[in-house]
Design a protein around this nucleic acid. Structure first.
Lengths: 245, 245
DNA sequence: CAGGGCGATTTTGCATTCAGAATTCCGGTT
DNA sequence: AACCGGAATTCTGAATGCAAAATCGCCCTG
């Protein structure tokens, strides 16, 4: 019952393609128009297409995606329930402000999920999943050498998502996805200044070892620590944004 | 006409009032109509106003809540994104089936949240929150004597929600709420057959002790165990539903 | 020139309408 | 009598229309 586990290239939750940019685009995508719209707008917001706190121009999005206001507003309501935008009565929607104070709670919650992922994935991961994660890990190594930050970030996301999938817990996956999407917005905010590739990869090495050894407590601890370090790094990066001197 | 839609008892997430029953009801509630609609329909679904898997009668709900299809469909889309209903393209929405196999994943995830709640609430709860939780705990004790299952369930929910609030983690709260709502549906499913009031209260005693002592690890462990026992009891109750012999 | 009030314009929220898909109904066939 | 096919009906998805709220622009006053 897990919807769409075939994420491959782009950011979190890429159920849909990147664009229905023009007015008369044929919509042959697998999902419904509604789901596509939600995904497209979410990606637009996550990837910084609009400034945080900025008013979301309903009419403009209608034209951009070639739909009328009814389905667009449905999508906005869903995105509001996910916390990406804020609906103000009679005053339209704004992109939810990115408050640096949100980073800690988000990662705190994610830490709890990472622990559960570690505890259960160590026991439940199939051999196929193990080898797929190994492949991803090797790709990470390659990217580390090439120094391509964007690719590394994406592969890193795929790796962690693959680990979460190994838990076979759809509830967990859903929460994990939403958290990752929220973090993704911060990633785009801090952009280049956020790079701890070498350190991150070293932690991944240990994570892979614990996973292959199928030692739940160890894997959980490594994932929690990895999460904590990512949180710290992101908070430092955001702090640097505020006062770049 | 067929389903009895009169709901009385209160469930999780009661931000909104119970009814906008008539056509020309004045809407003076704090939230927007949209939020009210979502909450009302969610309560309706959670509390078993419709059978699981049953088709959701759009027109009937429109009449019931006195709104047109546009805001109603917006609410349905949100509820679908929360997982309470399933949207089938061109074939309407159905109340998401209650699969007993969902119980384990839901409680597994909730266990991870409970642990985090225990770890952090033990340190962050204010004295005011402590005393409020104590009051709730005493009310639980009173209800235990009276044997009122519905009241106990509601107070029990309030208690755990209060504990979650003490974490000061809005992300955690949101995930916790959604999980509780999902569990609430199962509660209404098993109804009376699910009663472990005495045992549950005994666990709450220990939880209160650990909370007052502000011992994070102990509180976390107690909450996790409490969660696990609740899960077990619910699975047994559901199993009994299948074969009531 | 700054600040405030008032009308015009834009935007929102919801109702209504319309095209197309799905379901139902009903008669014909085997 | 059961089954199949097609028309009529119902329902869904989305566009459009409309009233109310909010925003903007302008003018006036101090």
């Amino acid at each position: 019952m897990t919807p769409d586990l075939t994420t491959t290239t782009k950011g979190p939750r890429m159920e849909a393609q990147d664009k229905i940019e023009t007015q008369n685009e044929t919509q042959t995508e697998a999902g419904t128009l509604h789901q596509t719209l939600v995904a497209n707008i979410r990606n637009l917001l996550i990837e910084g297409g609009l400034a945080a706190g900025q008013r979301i121009p309903e009419a403009e999005l209608c034209q951009r995606f070639g739909v009328s206001r009814t389905p667009l507003r449905e999508a906005l309501k869903v995105l509001a329930s996910e916390g990406f935008i804020q609906l103000r009565p009679n005053r339209g929607a704004i992109l939810a402000p990115l408050d640096p104070d949100q980073i800690a709670p988000i990662f705190e919650l994610k830490g709890a999920l990472e622990r559960l992922i570690g505890l259960t994935a160590a026991e439940r991961a199939t051999e196929a999943e193990l080898s797929r994660l190994s492949t991803l890990h090797l790709s990470l190594n390659d990217t580390l050498a090439s120094g391509n930050l964007a690719t590394y970030t994406q592969l890193n996301y795929d790796f962690h998502r693959g680990l979460a999938e190994a838990t076979r817990n759809a509830e967990l996956m859903q929460s994990y996805d939403i958290l990752q999407q929220k973090i993704w917005r911060f990633r785009f905010l801090v952009n280049d200044s956020f790079s701890r590739i070498e350190e991150s990869f070293a932690e991944h090495e240990q994570i892979m070892i614990a996973l292959r050894a199928r030692t739940p407590l160890d894997l959980a601890a490594r994932l929690e620590a990895h999460n904590q370090k990512t949180c710290d790094a992101m908070q430092r990066a955001v702090a640097q944004l505020d006062q770049p001197g």
